[in-house]
Design a binder for these strands. Structure first.
Length: 338
DNA sequence: GAGCCGTGGGA
DNA sequence: TTCCCAAGGCT
C-alpha cells in the first residue's frame, strides 16, 4: 500500500455512497452527532455479535430504556432477561454497572475521550476508540476484527494473529484521517462486513482494490493468518425442570462464570461423568437430551422433568417466561413441554 | 499471553 | 455434521 491518504479518501467516497443504514447511526457526513448512549449500547451489543442478531435487541432496549438514566434505574433481573439469548452475559452485567456510573457520577454524560471511556466497566480498547470516534468524532484509532482483516490484506501483513496486532494498529493509524474520523471508522467496518469479508471477499467491488497489496499478491482471501484453534471437548450433565402448577423451579446463576447472573433451571455439574443432583426427591421422567455448544466446549444435557412433590434444596418457584432464559435453558424447556 | 465467556448462521 | 466466525473484555 503506497498512499494511505488516497486510499482513505477512496474509502470515504465509497462510504458516502454505500453506508449501511443502521438504527444507531446518523447518515455519513451528517452535521449532527449520534446519541452517545445509543452508540455505546450498540457497540457493547456488537462485541463478537452480528448486526442481524443485535437489531432486535437494540430496538427493545432503547424502547424500554430510552436513555442512560432509565437504564441505570432498571432492576438487574429485568436487564438480564432482556439480554437473554444475545450471549456473553458479562456484557449485560457490565452494561448496567456502566450505566449507573455514568448516571450517578457523570450526570448522565458519557466521557468524550478514549481514556475516560476506557475506565468504565465493559469498555475496552476497541469500544473506547469506537465511541470516541463515532459519537464524538475524535481521531481515535479503532481496531476491531474488521479492521484487522482489512489492514492485513491492504498491507499484505503475513504475520499470524495475534502477533500481527502491533503492525495492524500502525497500519490503521496511518489510514485514520483527521477529518471525519467517525465516518472513517464506520467505513472500514462496513467494508469489512460487506466487501472485505472473511470468506470469499468481493475484491472486484472493493474501492481499495487499487491500493491493496494483498490483492496484488493474490493472497487477500488467505489473510489475516491465524493460529490453529483447539478442539472443543464434550461435557455432559443433567438439568431438572420441576413444575408446580403454572410455576417452574428456577434459580439465578452466580455472577461469575458461565451464564453468570442469568435465570436458569437447576443442573448437575457438567463434566465427563456427571453425578445426578436433583433439587428434590421425585420420580424424575427422562424428557430427552439437549445439545448446545459454548465458546470452548460442547454440552449434552439430559433433561429430567417432575411435578413438585417435595421441598427443593435450591431455587424458587416462579411463573416462567422462556424468553428470559439463556438459549441452553430455552431448549430444555421446549423439550420438557412437548 | 492465553483461557474463559454465547449464539446463530453460513459454507 | 462440523467448523468458522461476528463491531471484545476481563482475568
Amino acid at each position: 500500500m503506497r498512499d494511505s491518504r488516497q486510499a482513505a479518501d477512496r474509502l470515504m467516497g465509497w462510504y458516502d455512497a454505500h453506508a449501511r443504514d443502521l438504527p444507531w447511526r446518523v447518515p455519513p457526513g451528517a452535521a449532527a452527532r449520534p446519541d452517545p448512549y445509543r452508540v455505546w449500547l450498540s457497540e457493547v451489543m456488537l462485541q463478537q455479535t452480528t448486526v442481524a442478531a443485535v437489531r432486535e435487541y437494540f430496538h427493545r432496549f432503547t424502547r424500554i430504556w430510552p436513555d442512560v438514566h432509565a437504564l441505570a434505574a432498571a432492576e438487574d433481573p429485568d436487564v438480564m432477561a432482556a439480554w437473554a439469548g444475545l450471549g456473553y452475559y458479562a456484557r449485560a452485567r457490565n452494561l448496567l454497572a456502566c450505566a449507573r456510573v455514568v448516571s450517578r457520577d457523570l450526570d448522565g454524560t458519557f466521557p468524550d475521550t478514549e481514556d475516560g471511556l476506557r475506565a468504565l466497566p465493559g469498555i475496552g480498547p476497541y469500544t473506547a476508540a469506537a465511541i470516541a470516534a463515532i459519537a464524538f468524532d475524535r481521531p481515535a484509532v479503532v481496531v476491531d476484527g474488521n479492521v484487522e482483516r482489512v489492514m492485513a490484506r491492504l498491507f499484505a501483513i503475513r504475520t499470524p494473529l495475534p502477533a500481527a496486532k502491533p503492525a495492524i494498529r500502525d497500519a490503521a493509524a496511518a489510514l485514520t484521517p483527521e477529518r471525519r474520523p467517525g465516518d472513517h471508522a464506520q467505513a472500514v467496518m462496513d467494508l469489512g462486513a460487506t466487501i472485505c469479508t472473511a470468506k470469499s471477499p468481493s475484491c472486484l467491488l472493493c474501492p481499495l482494490k487499487p491500493d491493496c497489496a494483498g490483492h496484488a499478491a493474490g493472497i487477500a482471501a488467505t489473510l489475516p493468518a491465524k493460529a490453529p484453534k483447539k478442539a472443543k471437548p464434550t461435557r455432559r450433565g443433567y438439568v431438572y425442570l420441576a413444575r408446580r402448577g403454572s410455576d417452574w423451579l428456577t434459580e439465578r446463576r452466580p455472577d461469575k462464570g458461565l451464564l453468570g447472573g442469568m435465570a436458569a433451571f437447576p443442573t448437575s455439574d457438567w463434566s465427563e461423568a456427571p453425578a445426578e443432583a436433583p433439587p428434590f426427591d421425585a420420580p424424575w421422567r427422562d424428557a430427552g437430551e439437549v445439545r448446545h455448544t459454548f465458546t470452548h466446549f460442547h454440552l449434552i444435557l439430559t433433561v429430567r422433568v417432575a411435578e413438585a412433590t417435595g421441598n427443593p434444596d435450591r431455587g424458587q418457584w416462579t411463573p416462567l417466561d422462556p424468553a428470559a432464559l439463556p438459549t441452553l435453558f430455552r431448549k430444555a424447556h421446549a423439550l420438557a413441554v412437548t
